[in-house]
Simulated assay, not measured.
Amino acid sequence: MPNTTLDAAWAADWLRKSAAVVAENRVALSELDRAIGDGDHGENMDRGFNAILEKLDAEPPATPGAAFKLAAMTLMSKVGGAAGPLYGTAFLRAATAAGDAAELDAATLATALAAARDGVVARGKAVVGEKTMIDAWTPAVDAAAAASASGAAPAEVLAAAATAAEAGAVSTDPLIARKGRASYLGERAIGHRDPGAASSALILRAAAQAAGADA
């Protein structure tokens, strides 16, 4: 029977799996960014998650919320460009939603994902359709909420979120960018995937895998 809650070990494993998949896709993410941005998204994210690994090794978090806060503070301090503040805010809002709970159930996970997305919206002022990471996060949040409401286990909630995020990242390909450096390209941005949406999908899939989905 699937686990009905996820604890600090899951949260730490999520961050470790995120670090691994970001490292694996470091070049690809930077190539996506090179087409429509500064070309350093993969390098920046890899540096940030390597720093997270060091902190996890030094002091393992006691709760999921503590793990999210560790990630938030590290990404804000180590990741340059827009990604650091955006991802940092996302993890910080998720930490607040998780609170001091030792374990998170499906409903709390869905709430934490929504809080993370709302943090990105508050920081970046983006909406769906503007070729940003929100195009991955909003469908992920909607899918997580629907899965949770249907009685799905946490791993299933996260798997639904990841699948929706992956589709959302693909949906950025034909869009004209409305935010950030990519917005200066106009129609030349068409045909290129948003790197933040791509990395969001990778990280959300890592969360599902850490929970035992798609292992």
Rank of each mutant, 00 (worst) to 15 (best):
A144G: 01
I190H: 07
L185K: 01
A94C: 05
A159V: 06
V120N: 05
L104M: 15
E103A: 15
T63V: 12
I203S: 02
A143F: 07
L92C: 07
S171R: 05
S199H: 10
A198F: 05
A102D: 15
R34G: 10
G88I: 00
T63I: 11
A67N: 01
A147I: 01
S30V: 09
A149C: 08
A161I: 04
K55P: 06
A94T: 04
K78C: 05
G119W: 00
A122Y: 12
A126T: 11
A167F: 06
A23F: 02
Y87M: 14
A153M: 10
G168L: 02
A144P: 04
G151N: 10
T108A: 01
R123C: 11
S77E: 12
A146M: 05
A23R: 01
D7H: 11
V141R: 08
L75K: 08
A8D: 08
E31M: 09
K131G: 00
A167Y: 08
A97M: 11
D13T: 15
D214V: 13
F49H: 14
G191H: 02
T163F: 03
D100Q: 15
A19C: 14
I134W: 02
A72C: 10
R205V: 06
I36K: 01
E130Y: 05
R193F: 03
A160C: 08
R178H: 15
A122I: 10
A177K: 01
D173C: 14
A169E: 05
K78I: 03
L15F: 09
L6E: 04
L109F: 01
D214R: 13
A182C: 06
A136H: 03
E130S: 07
T4E: 15
A213K: 02
P2G: 10
T96A: 12
V121G: 03
S18P: 07
A198D: 12
G168E: 05
G37Y: 09
Q209E: 15
R123H: 11
A210M: 07
F91R: 00
R188I: 06
A126V: 02
G180L: 12
M45V: 11
S30Q: 06
S18V: 10
A207H: 00
L158Y: 09
A145Q: 12
G129R: 03
A102Y: 13
L29I: 04
P139F: 00
T108E: 02
D105G: 00
D118S: 15
K125S: 12
V170M: 08
L86C: 14
F68C: 14
A19S: 13
L92R: 07
P139V: 07
G129L: 06
A207Q: 03
A67C: 08
L92F: 13
H41R: 10
A20V: 11
N3L: 15
A114V: 01
M76L: 15
P174D: 13
D118Y: 10
S77F: 01
E54A: 14
R16H: 12
A210Y: 06
G186F: 09
R26K: 15
W10A: 05
A71L: 05
T63W: 11
W14L: 10
L158T: 09
A94Y: 00
F91S: 00
L113M: 15
A19I: 05
M76C: 14
E156T: 14
L175K: 00
R47P: 02
P2Y: 08
P60Y: 13
D194S: 08
A95M: 08
A182V: 03
A106C: 04
D142I: 07
A169N: 08
A136W: 00
L70F: 03
A114R: 14
A58N: 10
M133E: 07
A159I: 04
